[in-house]
Amino acid sequence: MKRKLMAAAIGVTAAFAAPLAFTSEELNFDAYRQMLADGNPAELFEMEGEELWVTARGPKNATLEQCDLGLGPGVVEGAAAQLPRYFADTGKVQDLESRLMHCMETLQGIPSGEIIGGKFRQGERGKLASLVAYVVTHSKGKPIAVDVSHPKMQDMYAMGEKVFFYRTGAMDFSCASCHGEDGKRIRATHLPNITTNKGAAEGWTSWPAYRVSNSQFWTFQHRLWDCFRQQRTAEPVFASDVTIALSVFLAAKSNGYEAQWPGVKR
């Protein structure tokens, strides 16, 4: 089924891309994104995720229908808009991907190590991405409401802010190097100023997203991993504290803004 969905996604992208041409000196992807908004190919990944949610899998031959994303077992409506959050049952702050990974291990018996040690868009990590697409769709249009009152959430926010401004790697870049000022672009893509609440919301509420340039669906963990790669620094471990801390920082600064999940990117 996944191959069929991928093929369909490529077909949809090609159909949209063929008639579109920009003649201005500055290529603007915003218009392209708007064209795709009503027929986002991410829907194909959402469909696969919905099927995975109700399919018995893993050593325990169980579904994910009892997975608690913070609003009670099985509740997906509005759940992503309130993540990351502190979970008492794990004693940890978890984002959507790490929480789904926890459910896959505890309910289905699928080892977290298989996902952490895997590759994006492949195997169980690829299935996790489809589950993300399914869950976030149920928060589209809902206001971000991340609770940072717990001390561990406050610690994560502080860590995320520190990481955001920390310069590292061969190019001495930080997240703020690209996302610390208004009006910056990379080629056709506008770079939000994440030091502002509006800019943080532009980033947080539009990922995960379907990437038109390569016909792929990228989760936020995938996006963060690629940001570190582009900084020419050590790439983070999947669902590690540093990635979750950055997620808390962006999400909390986005409180009150509406989620646009899943987004459409270049």
Rank of each mutant, 00 (worst) to 15 (best):
R167D: 04
G169D: 00
D226S: 13
P192C: 14
H190T: 11
F173T: 01
T196P: 04
R187G: 04
Y166W: 12
T219S: 13
T195K: 10
K162H: 13
K198E: 09
C178D: 05
F217L: 13
V163F: 06
K198H: 03
G203F: 13
T168F: 07
I194R: 05
I186V: 14
H190A: 06
R167I: 04
R211N: 09
N197Q: 08
S174C: 01
L224R: 09
K198C: 01
S215T: 12
L191R: 02
F173S: 02
V163Q: 09
R167M: 05
R223S: 02
N214Q: 04
T196F: 05
M156F: 06
K162A: 12
Q221L: 03
D155Q: 14
K198G: 02
A176E: 11
S174N: 00
N193C: 14
S206D: 05
W207F: 13
S215A: 14
A200W: 13
A209K: 03
E202M: 01
R223Q: 01
G183V: 11
A170S: 03
K184S: 05
D172V: 07
F173I: 04
A176H: 05
H190G: 03
C175F: 00
C178T: 10
W225P: 03
T189A: 07
A176Y: 02
A158H: 15
G183L: 08
I194G: 12
Q221Y: 00
M171T: 10
F217D: 07
D155K: 14
C175S: 01
F217R: 07
R223Y: 02
W207E: 04
H190V: 11
G199L: 11
C227P: 03
R185C: 09
F165H: 12
F217V: 10
S206R: 11
R211Y: 15
P192I: 14
K198T: 04
W207Y: 11
W204R: 06
R167W: 02
T189E: 10
G203W: 10
T219Q: 03
M156V: 01
P208S: 05
G160F: 02
A170L: 07
G160D: 01
Q216F: 09
G180M: 09
T205W: 00
A200R: 09
H179C: 04
G183H: 10
T168W: 09
M171P: 01
T219Y: 03
F164Q: 03
A201D: 04
N197P: 01
E202R: 00
Y166H: 14
E181M: 15
K198V: 06
S206G: 02
A158R: 15
A209C: 08
W218A: 11
Y166C: 08
I194L: 14
E161N: 13
A200M: 10
C178S: 09
T195F: 06
W218Q: 10
T205G: 05
W207M: 12
